[in-house]
Structure formats: C-alpha cells, structure tokens
Write a protein that binds this DNA or RNA. Structure first.
Length: 794
RNA sequence: GAGCCUAUGGCGCAGCGGUAGCGCAACACGUUUACACCGUGUAGGUCGCCGGUUCGAAUCCGGCUGGGCUCACCA
C-alpha cells in the first residue's frame, strides 16, 4: 500500500467526504465556545501563489487545532474582487481599457469576469486543504458587503469621522485616481539634476531641479534666511525661464542650504513640501498637470504633452536659450503607485477622507489591546501609525467598487446621504427619499467609488453579520471581536491598520483578540520570488507533484513572522514522513486485529514511552496555544520518527510476534501502547497534514473511535497520572544500551540481526529488571551478563 | 537618515542563561518478518566580530560589520 500511496485519490476522496458530511460547518446553534477567524479575502486573480499557500496553511493549522480542541470554529472565506486590482485584471484578461469604455458596460464586464473565474480561483484554496466555511463565502462586492460598507460609511459620517475636502492629494495619472499613503511604494529611477537659470533683474539665480516640466507650475522661490548668497534678492521677483512670468522670492528656514543651489522653486505640486508651502503662503496655484498626466494651458506651447515628453522638450529649449547650466545624471528614489509603478503627482481634487491623524494616539494604544504573534510585529504597526502624515483617502475615481451612498443637490450643492433602508444603493440608479432642504428635488449622484480597503477593512463586520441580512445568521455581538486575525506582514499598514480603525470608530473595540503574522516565501537563495526573476514556484504544481499534505508540512517549518526559503527537497522530505506514517500504522494494525480498546496492565517500558508521549502532548498543546505550530510539528516529527519508529516498534516486535514465548499479557500491553501512540501521533499531525491523517484514521481507527472524522475528534490531552519518572528513566537507559549495541555492530560492519553477548552493569540490571527480555530480543543478545561496564561481545 | 528583524556545521532551519541540535546533502556499513520513499552508524560548527553582565552566554546588555524588511528623504 505504501508504495502506491496515491495522494491525488486520497485528497480527492476526503475533500468530498468532508464537504458532504459538513465536517467543517460552523454551527451557530452550538453551545461550544466560538473561535472566530478573520480570514483574509484574497484578491481574485488567475491563481493562488506560493505566498498564499504558505500563510493560509498557517491559519488552517490553527483552525484545525481549535476545532479539535472542541471549539466551534468560525472560519469564513471571502474574496476581494473589486477596485483597481480587479479592474486591471479584467482589462488584461479582456484586452479592454476602462477609460475608453462605457462605465456601466465595464462594470458589467468586471462582474461577469469575476463570476467566471472565481470558482476556479477558490478551488486552489480547497486544494490545499483549507477547512474554511466555503458555503458561507462572501465577496467584498456582493450586496451584503456593499450594504455593510455603505452603512458603516454613513456611521462614520454621523460620528464626524469622515469628511470631504478639495485639496492637493496623491494622484496616479495612469490609473487616474486619488490614492492613499499606504499605496505608495519606493522605486529607484535614473534622472537628471538640472541647474537652471532664473533671472532676478539682470542677475542669474540658479535653481536645481529634477522636474523641469514643473517650471510653468512654479509659484514662488524659497531660500534660507541665513543664506548670504541670496540676501540681496529677498523680496524681489524672479522671472520664470521660458514662461515669462514673475514669482516672489521668500525665505524659509526649512530650506537646506547645502542642497542643490540652496534656492528652490515651489511648484503646484511637486511634492508634499510644495503643497504645504503653497498653503502656508496662500499662493494661487498653477496646477499644470491634468488628471490624465497631460500638461494644460499653463504650459503654453508644451500644452498637450505628457510629463515625460514635456520634461525633455523643456530641457531642450532651456539648453537652446542657454538657460541650462548643467544636467547631472542621478539616481533617486521616487514614490510610485503600488498597483502600476507610476510616479505619483499631487493634484487638487475633491476627495473623501477618514480622519486618522487626530486619533493616532488612540490607534497606537489599540496595539496593546491585541496580542501580536510574533510580538515584534506590533512595532511595525506602531511605527507606521506614528509616521502617518495624511488622513485616509477612501474615494477613488474608478469604475468598479462600492459606490458612495450620496447625492448632491443640483441647486444648493448640499450632500444628501442615503437612508439605511435604501442600502445597498447605487446612487446613479436611485434618488433620495426626500427633497433637499432647499426645496429642490434635482440631484446628481456621487460618481466616485470607495477604495477596496474601505470595504475589506470591514471583514469582521461583514462576516459577523453586523447588518443582519438573511445571508448570514450570526449574532454580531457573540462573535465580535473575533478571536484571530491571520495575515502576512506586508499588509499590516493597510489591512490590519484599517481594520483596527474601523473597529474603534464603529464599535469602540479592537476587532480581534489575537493577530498572527506570517512571513513570506523566498526562493532557495533567499531572494524574493517575482515573475521578472523567473523564480516563481506555483503551489498547484507542488500539490500535483507532492500532494497538499507535503506542501503544508513544508509550510509548517516556518516560525511565525519569519520568511522561509522554498526548497523542493524539503517538500520531498514531507512525503517521506507520510510514507513512514502509512507503514508504521500498517505495521501496528497487522497486530491489532483482536484489539479492544481496553486498559490493561502495562509493562514498564510501555509506561515509559507513554509517559514521554504524554509530555509531548503537553508541549504540542502549549505550542499550538501560542500559535507556534512549527514547534509542535517539529516535536511530533522527532518523537514519531526516533522514539516510535526507530525504537518502540522494534522493541515491541518480540512481544507482538511471540506471545507464546513472552505471554499474552505482554502482547496486550504492547498492543495498547501501539494503538495509543499511533492514534496520538496522527492526531498531533492532523492540523498540519489533514489528508494522510484522515486516511489512516478512517482505515484503522474509526472502528473503535466514535468520531466521524479525525478533524472533529478530540485533541490529545495531557494526563497527570500517566507521568511516570521511573518508567521514563528505564526507557532512557534501555534506549541508551540499544544505541550502544547498534553502534558496536556498525563498527564491526555486521548486520543488526547478528547475535551477540551483551554485558551490562549491575546498576543497569536493577533498573531494567522488568524488561530484560525485551532488551535481549531487540539487541539479538544470546545472553545478558553483568560486569563493570556495558560491553558487546561477538 | 530612522525603526524593526537577522547572522548557529556545505545548504535550509531549531535552540534564546547551564558546557551545541534537527532535516537535507556527504561518507561507511547493513536487505533486519512495517518501511530501500529503508535501517544503523560516521564525519562536519570555538553559534559574524569586539567588549560587558554573570559562578556560567549561541542565549542578556553595548558597540562594530554583513544580510533582509519597512519608513523617510526625494528642491
């Protein structure tokens, strides 16, 4: 059987069984304690990647462990399938451009596409053995989620925690939407640092810039008040090269005299510094870049060019007019949009913001009310919150997302919020229930949609059924706050942070008791996996080749929060353990035909290993309770391999095969221990390797155990009265002598079945008095004699 | 520039105050009635460097160096 273990068949068989039998269903009528997991909804794409397989395995270990601890595990599954990532996916799959399409048609296309690919995408999660409540799966754009998101947006408004403001905001000219600080990424670019001549009267004022295309956006010049070079021009006006208008020259202490020429142009808007300077001086901005990245009338003859072309044209013209002194090549780091890699701009636009900055302290305090695994990840959260400089911009000028439940009065401009009974709502297809206070009933719908994070940050409210829709039948207050948020570390600043914000703002309570952070998967050399490097490993291929248990067994090697290098060898190794489990249980049940699970008088050596196994249970339970599944896995693996297989099975053989010689009682004792050890080991492995453990459980144990599946059976419990120090000591000494004999035989290059004479000390004899027959048999000793030291004679 | 993590046999990792462990790889031997997808054994590390605390440090503290992640700067 072992040789032909067909994991594909086995995995398929048990997946079907679990689903049909409803093994993982969440029972909301149960009196058991609930353990609720705030599962990350993965962004729908073509396929699951290895990083997903890695961290979702980790959370499934915990879910399965808690289920075996007889908790009522609530383990919902959702997908995140709207917003920019989805739009980009649809554009790619369908070869369309949202900006060139009718919005309604594009939205429909998005819905259809996602509906189409979602089942196959979710199948990847089922294939790695996730024990989620797939029957209760949600999407962040289904009606339930839209309603939750809109209702809680209105709640934010009622509480004064959200505001609309027209201000310079971070903007992506490619995606043509505002973005939030959390969506910034750094990228290194080659550029030039250009020294350009501005005229002040007849004098030359040199200004260094990397962004010459923003010269027509310049509204003033800054120099440091202590900078002697520029004392004489302060208060005068500088003439803008090529564009022939003048701007004032101000002093400001924030100017770094060492940088560039010490004089800088303030443009609308080059960066956050510009935004602040223009606001501080109350200057009239000249916003030269339009939302699509094209320069406007402020750019005169460069109007209609994109940023890159304008930069080149302006530099060329400056050079022609001898206004460009130098063009030094530099490499500098620029903020780009994480979704498309485009350099971000600052454009003035009207956006919705959730207040963050005024509540930083409270948000930081929240970190202490949640237990972080591992603890140092809390620091990342705290650092991020401390460093925040912008409120959370949640509006996006995109097509496919949760709409804002808002209209504006065409007469007086007042904003009208939808009423709760209207939700979920598409404002363009509905009207406010009442007239505007100005008497008008002419409204225009808000066109923007919400950022996906504005909805996925409500995953606890969505899955715990805050709004009480029929699709979910969970009482919110009973499940919220949830027990655990599992996620990877890259989204602490987004998902974890935003979920905490929403928890505090809506319920004045942190959303979960615990948060468990996984690391990332690296390639065998410890480098990030990326398509461009060609070092990407697909989890479904691993599942095909080595099985889901092997993939999971490998993933269980990772300690929390730490990255792990992927090595195929390690996955292969998992298969070894699976085979070993099969062989060992086959051996055990060869000898358990007549076994009735009844307690019998145990031999001392059997008491010894049971006592040790009892300690293992204690350690594994402790590890799992602290989310250290890797420790539990390692300890179980070591115990199974070296104590159970290498030693106990060998020791027990004589009694199992020769009851006539050794006595029926000694065989019964071995049977009992064999049964307990094998059952215990597969239970300890069950959260990690659900298929092979179920296979063994169902082929052998289910006859005597009452549980329908190992995954709802009881996690082994530490039993105080099994502790037997003398028996353990006996076991240790026994194994020590056995190892010594093996060593001696290896030295002589003889087979382990070679018969020998064994000499042990009188002290050892005392300790081993009750198991000398076992020792004799397993060492193939013709006789055991006593001397001053342990010896083997051939 | 700042914060966090990290440095342990060839490789991947555990250990986190009591004189180094696991898996892979290597080597030798062994077919032994669960298993050659095997067994037994051997070899291989003064735990990055310097200092401190301690009876005692891979383990705690400080500094340095290297690696990684994150944030900031970005005229």
């Amino acid at each position: 059987m072992a040789k032909n273990y067909d994991f594909k068949d086995v995995e398929h068989k048990w997946n079907k069984f679990w689903e049909e039998e409803g093994i993982y269903l969440f029972d909301n009528t149960s009196k058991k304690k609930t353990y609720a997991i705030d599962t990350p909804p993965p962004t729908v794409s073509g396929a699951m990647h290895l990083g997903h397989a890695f961290s979702y395995s980790h959370e499934d270990f915990i879910a399965r462990y808690q289920r075996m601890k007889q908790k009522n595990v609530f383990f919902p599954f959702g997908t995140d399938d709207n917003g920019l990532p989805t739009e980009r996916l649809v554009e790619k799959l369908k070869s369309v451009k949202s900006t060139e399409m009718d919005r309604e048609k594009f939205v429909k296309l998005c819905q259809d596409t996602v509906t189409d690919i979602r089942p196959k995408f979710i199948q990847d999660w089922k294939n790695i053995g996730m024990s989620c409540n797939f029957n209760q799966s949600y999407s962040t754009i289904d009606n339930h989620s839209i309603k939750t998101s809109q209702l809680l947006f209105i709640d934010l408004h009622k509480k004064g925690l959200v505001y609309q403001k027209s201000a310079p905001t971070m903007w992506c000219v490619k995606c043509q939407t505002a973005i939030a600080q959390a969506e910034l990424e750094d990228e290194n670019f080659n550029s030039t640092f250009n020294d350009i001549i501005f005229k002040v009267g007849k004098k030359d004022l040199i200004i260094a810039t990397t962004r010459p295309e923003l010269i027509p956006a310049c509204v003033c010049i800054y120099v440091n008040p202590d900078d002697n070079r520029y004392k004489d021009i302060i208060g005068k006006k500088a003439e803008i090269p090529l564009f022939e208008y003048k701007v004032p020259i101000f002093t400001d202490e924030s100017v770094d005299m060492q940088k560039g020429s010490g004089a800088m142009m303030i443009c609308s808007y080059g960066d956050k510094y510009d935004v602040e300077a223009i606001a501080k001086r109350k200057l009239e901005p000249r916003v030269v870049i339009e939302k699509n990245g094209i320069l406007n009338h402020f750019a005169d003859k460069y109007k209609g060019m994109n940023i890159k072309d304008a930069r080149k044209a302006i530099l060329d013209d400056l050079e022609k007019h001898s206004l460009l002194i130098s063009k030094k090549p530099i490499q500098h780091v620029v903020n780009v949009h994480d979704k498309c890699g485009t350099e971000i701009e600052f454009l003035s636009s009207k956006q919705w913001f959730v207040k963050i900055l005024e509540n930083k302290k409270k948000l930081i305090k929240s970190a202490d009310k949640i237990t972080w695994y591992p603890e140092f990840m809390k620091t990342r959260y705290v650092n991020w919150v401390e460093a925040l400089e912008w409120d959370w911009c949640i509006s996006r000028q995109r097509a496919y997302g949760v709409p804002f439940p808002i209209w504006y009065c065409n007469k007086c401009g007042k904003e009208i919020f939808a009423e709760e009974k209207q939700l979920p709502l598409f404002p363009s297809k509905a009207k406010p229930l009442k007239k505007c206070s100005c008497g008008s009933d002419n409204f225009v719908a808000e066109q923007d949609v919400m950022d996906t994070w504005a909805t996925s940050s409500l995953s606890p409210q969505i899955v715990c059924n805050f709004i009480n829709s029929e699709e979910y039948n969970i009482n919110f207050g009973n499940v919220y706050p949830m027990s655990l948020r599992p996620q990877a570390h890259d989204i602490i600043r987004t998902w974890a942070f935003y979920t905490i914000v929403r928890g505090l703002y809506h319920h004045n309570k942190e959303p979960w008791e615990n948060i468990m952070i996984s690391g990332h998967v690296l390639d065998p050399k410890g480098k990030k996996m990326s398509k461009s490097k060609g070092n990407v490993v697909e989890p479904q291929k691993i599942v095909q080749t080595y099985g889901a248990d092997s993939l999971r067994f490998w993933a269980a090697n990772a300690t929390l929060g730490k990255d792990l290098s992927y090595k195929e060898e390690d996955v292969k190794n998992a298969l070894r353990t699976i085979t070993k489990l099969l062989n060992a249980s086959n051996f055990a049940f060869m000898h358990l035909n007549d076994f009735k699970n009844k307690k019998v008088e145990l031999e001392i050596i059997d008491k010894g290993i049971l006592s040790k196994f009892n300690e293992l249970i204690k350690e594994c339970t402790k590890s799992f309770d602290g989310y250290e599944y890797s420790k539990s896995k390692m300890l179980t693996e070591m115990f199974f391999w070296s104590q159970v297989c290498d030693n106990y099975l060998e020791i027990a053989k004589d009694r199992l095969y020769n009851p006539d010689k050794r006595g029926e009682d000694s065989r019964k004792s071995a049977q009992y221990v064999l049964y307990q050890l094998m059952l215990g080991v597969i239970k300890l492995f069950a959260p990690i390797m659900p298929y092979i453990t179920e296979e063994i459980y169902q082929s052998h144990f289910v006859k005597l155990e009452k549980d329908k599946s190992i995954h709802i059976s009881k996690w082994p419990e530490y039993e105080k009265n099994l502790k037997d120090e003398i028996a353990e000591k006996t076991w240790d000494k026994f194994v020590e002598i056995l190892s010594f004999v093996r060593q001696e035989k290896a030295k002589k290059n003889v087979s382990l079945v070679t018969e020998v004479k064994l000499i042990i000390t009188k002290q050892d004899k005392l300790l081993l008095a009750e198991c000398l027959d076992d020792l004799k048999a397993v060492c193939k000793a013709k006789e055991i004699n006593y001397g001053d030291e342990v010896k083997v004679e051939f």
